[in-house]
Simulated scan of single mutants.
Amino acid sequence: MEIQVVSKSSSLGDAQELNAIRILGHQLPASYRKFSAAFGYGRLGGLVIIYSGDPIHPDSVIIQGGRVKSFIDESISEDYFEFRPASDERRIGNLYPFAASENGEYFAWDLNSGEEGEYLIYCIGARMAGLRYAARSLDELFDKLCGDSIRGVMGPGYKPLPRTFEGL
């Protein structure tokens, strides 16, 4: 994964701490741990904010991810999550967010899926407007977002993102 670093993050994840973190009893995916230790908290392609791996950072995978997870759970219980395209309530209940676009989409792992230390990644539409399969790992997600496959992940109105990372 080639990424031009525009600016460094002030919040790099500690490799040992990242290995110890559990999300609802599940270890963080290998690609996220590697990314967080190398790049930290920041914005990919000028659009997608990857949550910090530092558990006490206010925009961390623990704190912000947990906050967004509660929004997802509420949208299911209050019946305003749109279960199209290609989504079902069981899968949505297993999702745990780790990133968000500045346009309101969320990227989340399906904690009950995947293999080889990874979880399948889904894109949740802005305002909980549907769910799309995105990738098998963070590396594959970045490749898709920075290529023509972005339209299949985020929708037809998107163009490939630049391969840049801006630390926050």
Rank of each mutant, 00 (worst) to 15 (best):
Y32S: 01
S31V: 08
A100M: 13
G40K: 09
F39E: 02
D79G: 12
G53M: 07
Y96T: 06
G40I: 06
G93T: 04
R90F: 01
H26K: 15
G117T: 06
G46W: 10
G46N: 13
E102W: 10
D88K: 08
G65T: 02
L95V: 05
E82Q: 06
D79T: 09
G66C: 06
A99Q: 08
Y51I: 04
P58H: 06
G42E: 07
S77F: 02
G46Y: 12
S36F: 03
F83T: 09
G66I: 10
L120Q: 08
R33W: 00
I56P: 01
E102T: 15
P58E: 08
I121T: 07
Y122I: 03
G66L: 10
P55Q: 01
G104M: 11
F107D: 03
I50H: 08
D59V: 09
C123L: 01
S52F: 05
E105C: 12
V68S: 07
R132V: 08
E78V: 01
D59R: 13
S87I: 01
E78M: 10
G42Q: 10
P55K: 11
V68A: 09
Y41T: 05
G40V: 07
D79K: 15
E78W: 00
A100F: 03
D88V: 04
E89D: 04
P85Q: 08
R127N: 14
A126M: 10
N103K: 15
A129S: 13
G46I: 12
A108V: 01
S70H: 11
L47Q: 13
S52H: 03
F71Y: 14
P97E: 10
F35P: 08
N103F: 12
E118S: 07
A37N: 11
G46R: 12
Y41S: 11
S36Q: 07
E115K: 14
E102D: 14
Y32Q: 02
A100P: 00
R84S: 13
G40L: 08
A126D: 14
S87A: 13
I56R: 09
D54S: 02
A30W: 01
Y122V: 01
D59Y: 10
Y51G: 03
N103D: 15
A126V: 10
F35H: 14
S113P: 04
E102P: 00
P58D: 01
D54I: 03
A99N: 09
Y80C: 10
I92L: 13
N103G: 15
F98S: 11
S60Y: 11
Y51C: 04
Y41G: 02
G130T: 05
L24R: 15
L47A: 13
K34I: 09
I50Y: 11
I63R: 15
R132A: 01
R84P: 00
F98D: 05
V61H: 07
A100Q: 14
D110Q: 06
L120C: 03
A30T: 12
Y41R: 12
F71G: 13
S77A: 13
G42F: 06
